[in-house]
Write a protein that binds this DNA or RNA. Structure first.
Length: 311
DNA sequence: CGAATTTGACCTGCGC
DNA sequence: GCGCAGGTCAAATTCG
């Protein structure tokens, strides 16, 4: 079943020259570089453009995209103003010196997500949610114990992305509790299952390493947080939340490297265990230079020097 | 001592 | 119906 989800093609798009190249996924449930990702990125002031060279290489499927650095603005601490409902949880803000997110995609086995089906984001995102508070909402998933026999397990929208990291469990601002681990077929690496520690939050995430490229961690989020991260006290974020009155997802800063080529395969300092540190990037992390990216900092969220910011 | 993790058992869905 | 694989539970264990 999840075999499909292991059709990633690691190693296809992880070089970083003029910009980050988003990956593509041969499984229709993934739509890396889709309209929705594009719209999300455009919220940051970025533009997605097709990677024509790569598209020539991979005739079989959806195009690769590159982020257009020309439109890059200062994204430090930016939270996306209006993330549509069911917008996936943020890719993790890498623990210092640990990782770089190299690609992303949406996964929704229960829905008919596909690159050619833009209604996925609209139909699933039009669901009203602001009206009721998180505590008033009943969990979208019926607990197994309470589930009637024969009642189909419903799947929350899922979002997967691959991260090059030595650390399996990447810090993303939320606190997670591990509730299971399973060996995965055709993979030497086990898959770990995490649940958000917030009792009212039903978000889950799966973490596994790519069998094809062990340096790549595949993280799949399922569901949507009904609360805030534990460590992003960004004033603009709070202000925005106050303005809209609904829980907003924090979308981490994803700064792009300078035009210089950066080897994202550079080994990074690792953290032990699951690395569940309360992350407050703005407060804790000194802003590194771009060179630090490939040496020891590796903070994807802090890698753009001030010079390339427009604001 | 409470919280988090580990891990074997169990449940569910799906393909044959 | 059966077997397999993914997903979850929960008791035991470990950790801080």
């Amino acid at each position: 079943m999840d075999d499909d989800e292991k059709k990633h093609e690691p190693g296809t798009s992880f070089t970083c020259t003029s910009g980050w190249t988003l990956g593509s996924e041969a499984d229709s449930d993934y739509f890396f570089g889709s309209d929705r990702e594009s719209s999300i990125l455009s919220e940051f002031g970025w533009n997605l453009r097709p990677d024509t060279d790569r598209n020539l290489e991979s005739e079989s499927f959806s195009p690769f995209y590159q982020i257009d650095l020309d439109g890059c603005s200062d994204l430090a601490g930016t939270s996306i103003p209006h993330i549509p409902q069911n917008t996936p949880p943020p890719p993790p803000a890498a623990a210092p010196g640990s990782s770089q997110t190299v690609s992303a995609g949406s996964v929704d086995k229960s829905g008919d997500a596909s690159p050619s089906n833009p209604s996925v984001s609209s139909s699933s995102t039009d669901e009203p949610q602001e009206k009721s508070t998180a505590s008033e909402e009943k969990p979208p998933e019926t607990p197994i114990k309470n589930r009637k026999k024969g009642q189909k397990r419903t799947r929350q929208p899922r979002f997967a992305f691959m991260t090059k990291s030595e650390i399996d469990h990447l810090e993303d601002g939320y606190r997670w509790r591990k509730y299971g681990q399973k060996a995965v077929k055709n993979s030497p690496f086990p898959r770990s299952y995490y649940r958000c520690t917030n009792s009212k939050c039903t978000v889950k995430k799966r973490v596994e390493r790519s069998s094809e490229d062990p340096s790549i961690v595949i993280t799949t989020y399922e569901g949507q947080h009904c609360h805030h991260t534990v460590g992003f006290p960004r004033s603009s974020f709070m202000a925005h939340e106050a303005a809209f009155g609904a829980p907003q997802l924090y979308y981490p800063r994803v700064h792009l490297p300078l035009g210089a080529s950066i080897d994202v395969r550079q080994p990074h300092r690792g953290l032990s265990g699951t690395g569940q540190l309360p992350l407050q990037p703005q407060l804790q992390a000194p802003r590194p230079t771009s060179l630090q990216l490939s040496t020891d900092e590796g903070l994807l969220g802090d890698i753009v020097p001030a010079g390339m910011r427009h604001r």
